[in-house]
Computed example of a mutant assay.
Amino acid sequence: MNFQDWFKLFAEQIASTSIIEWLAVGFGVSEVLLAKKNNIWLYPTGIVSILLSMFLLLNVKLYAEMLLSIYYLVMSVYGWIIWKKRKEEGENQVSYSSNRDLLIAILISTIGFVVFYFALKNHTDSDVPILDAFVSATAWAGMWLLAKRKIENWIFLNISNIVAIPLLFHKKLPLMGCLTAFLFVVAIFGFFDWKKIINKNKLKLAV
């Protein structure tokens, strides 16, 4: 398939995109921009996007990502509560992960992948169990780190994003694929923005 064929297919998919997918993408864009700014409103915005995405993912049989969305929902409420409690401290909560944090994140990714893959392979009609399981497991770890305001959340989320992009196009969800590509780029900037916050806090403590 040449570039013109790909472009035509993409245009056809965009033209047939449902209003639910447009809304999910719109709220998803808002969520990641707010996360980049370290703004607590990322959570209520994200919750709306998650609920809409759950409906879409269920329809295209991305079951692990559907479960991931439920986890996102729980972690969004959890993160919202934590961030609200720490509102007064704000940016001071952004930090690097400890060795223990990273170990837990890696365990979440590894165990999550094994569990997801086994469930998808043996108990669903998924045609992409490996990719679906990988995307979901690494994103689980990223969301856990985001709730704890650890800078490495951007790394885990982007590991998930880079695999999710072609997977979503394969499942004929072009807008969500484009959103994920956008999230990938924003996550890179988010990492460096949070790094600046950490360095600024270090300078304050040194003075």
Score class of each variant (00 low, 15 high):
S76P: 00
S76H: 07
S76C: 06
S76M: 06
S76W: 01
V77D: 05
V77A: 15
V77S: 13
V77K: 09
V77W: 10
Y78T: 05
Y78E: 04
Y78H: 13
G79M: 05
G79P: 02
G79W: 00
G79R: 09
G79I: 02
G79L: 06
W80F: 10
W80Q: 04
I81D: 08
I81P: 00
I81Y: 14
I81E: 08
I81Q: 12
I81N: 13
I82P: 02
I82E: 10
I82N: 13
I82R: 14
I82Y: 10
I82F: 04
I82K: 15
W83Y: 11
W83I: 03
W83N: 11
W83R: 13
W83M: 10
W83D: 08
W83V: 04
K84L: 11
K84T: 08
K84A: 13
K84R: 15
K85I: 02
K85S: 07
R86L: 10
R86K: 14
R86G: 14
K87Y: 10
K87L: 11
K87T: 01
K87Q: 15
K87W: 07
K87I: 00
K87C: 04
E88T: 07
E88Y: 03
E88V: 06
E88W: 00
E89I: 03
E89A: 13
E89K: 12
E89N: 12
E89D: 09
E89W: 02
E89G: 02
G90M: 05
G90T: 02
G90F: 04
G90E: 09
G90P: 00
G90V: 01
E91L: 11
E91H: 05
E91T: 05
E91Y: 04
E91D: 13
N92H: 12
N92P: 00
N92L: 10
N92M: 08
N92I: 00
N92D: 12
N92V: 02
N92S: 14
Q93L: 06
Q93H: 07
Q93R: 09
Q93M: 12
V94A: 15
V94K: 05
V94S: 09
V94W: 12
S95E: 08
S95G: 12
S95Q: 12
S95C: 03
S95W: 00
S95I: 03
Y96K: 14
Y96V: 03
Y96H: 15
Y96F: 15
Y96D: 11
S97N: 03
S97D: 03
S97Y: 01
S97A: 15
S97K: 04
S97T: 01
S97F: 00
S97R: 03
S97M: 02
S97E: 01
S97I: 01
S98V: 01
S98M: 06
S98E: 08
S98Q: 05
S98G: 09
S98N: 04
N99K: 13
N99C: 02
N99V: 03
N99E: 06
N99D: 08
N99R: 13
N99G: 13
N99W: 01
R100N: 12
R100K: 15
R100I: 07
R100H: 13
D101G: 11
D101W: 06
D101Y: 09
L102K: 15
L102C: 06
L102W: 09
L102A: 11
L102E: 11
L102H: 08
L102I: 08
L103G: 08
L103T: 11
L103D: 05
I104F: 11
I104C: 05
I104W: 10
A105K: 07
A105E: 06
A105C: 06
A105V: 00
A105P: 04
A105L: 04
A105Y: 04
